[in-house]
């Protein structure tokens, strides 16, 4: 078990007039190899939940264990935790600060005590991993890069630390369609190397349906469902919670309404395959 959350609750601005409960008794576990998606309408507590995972938010009630590091302890080992659990924030390009892209990417490894050679090597590999041209960008200021390149540089800064778990808060927000796909494919391709599990917060149901094998649904700080994408999107009425269905699921539902017999598929490729099978069956029967 890599992450174990039990009965986690959190209130912002406790004992002030601005008090706001963000999480109510959330429990879940993540094991090695999981690809977990977290969905929920705005303000449902997704960011609050994931910020707990590497101790950026102090535990108020409940218990939380990540890699056997107990976050309810008095002084948890944050350094190890944050090295092993990388976190990419919403719009991470705003965290870039160093003079050069290379220095920025090295910021994490240096903080985590990599030796100079290791840090250089990790930075180079990470920059190449995210699809930037190392020799071209390494000496440029991160502020000169385009939006998409900045996002890549920010991700490189996280990947250079070689995290075992990667937590992404809306990694594709504000990217063009090709950029979105590149990003998700990159993360998928990394899984299985140093990266063991991925947790993604997203408002894009298509991405969740395609890239996650488990989906957690939050609503007003309560965990409503923890299921596979098929179970969730075909079993629950997610539209009730201000979310939409992945478009493939919408099409399948429309087809079923018209009497087409088709199994529960989640991506376009499977949909096309099933439709073709269905048509062939129809032709045979005719």
């Amino acid at each position: 078990m890599q992450i174990e959350i039990k009965d986690l609750s959190y209130v912002y601005g406790k004992k002030t007039p601005f008090e706001k409960a963000a999480l109510h008794g959330v429990s879940l576990t993540v094991s090695e190899g999981d690809s977990v998606g977290i969905i929920g309408s705005t303000g449902s507590g997704k960011s609050t939940l994931i910020q707990h995972l590497n101790g950026l938010i102090k535990l108020q009630s409940g218990s939380l264990k990540v890699f056997d590091i107990d976050l309810s302890a008095k002084k948890p080992d944050y350094k190890t935790l944050r090295k092993k659990l990388g976190m990419l924030f919403q719009y991470p390009e705003y965290q870039l600060f160093a003079d050069t892209v290379e220095a920025d990417v090295k910021f994490g490894p240096v903080n985590f005590g990599f030796s100079k050679e290791d840090a250089d090597k990790a930075a180079k590999e990470a920059i190449e991993m995210v699809g930037l041209d190392y020799d071209e960008v390494k000496d440029r200021s991160p502020l000169e890069l385009s939006g998409g390149q900045k996002r890549r540089a920010a991700i490189a800064g996280i990947l250079a630390c070689r995290p075992e778990i990667l937590v992404l808060d809306e990694p594709t927000a504000g990217l063009d369609p090709a950029g979105k796909k590149d990003m998700l494919d990159l993360i998928r391709s990394l899984k299985g190397s140093f990266l063991k599990s991925v947790i993604t917060v997203s408002h894009n149901m298509d991405e969740i349906a395609e890239y996650c094998d488990r989906v957690i649904l939050l609503h007003d700080g309560v965990l409503l469902s923890d299921a596979t994408p098929t179970e969730l999107f075909y079993g629950e009425d997610v539209e009730k919670y201000g979310l939409s269905l992945p478009h493939v699921v919408k099409i399948v539902k429309l087809l079923r309404d018209k009497g087409v017999v088709i199994p529960e598929v989640l991506n376009e490729k499977d949909l096309v395959k099933e439709l073709k099978l269905y048509l062939e069956r129809g032709r045979k029967n005719a």
Binding site: G86, F89, F107, C161
Partner: peptide, 13 residues
């Protein structure tokens, strides 16, 4: 708050 969190996640202290 946000920037500090992002840098803390990268090991800043």
């Amino acid at each position: 708050d946000k920037i500090m969190m992002a840098q803390k996640a990268r090991g800043a202290c």
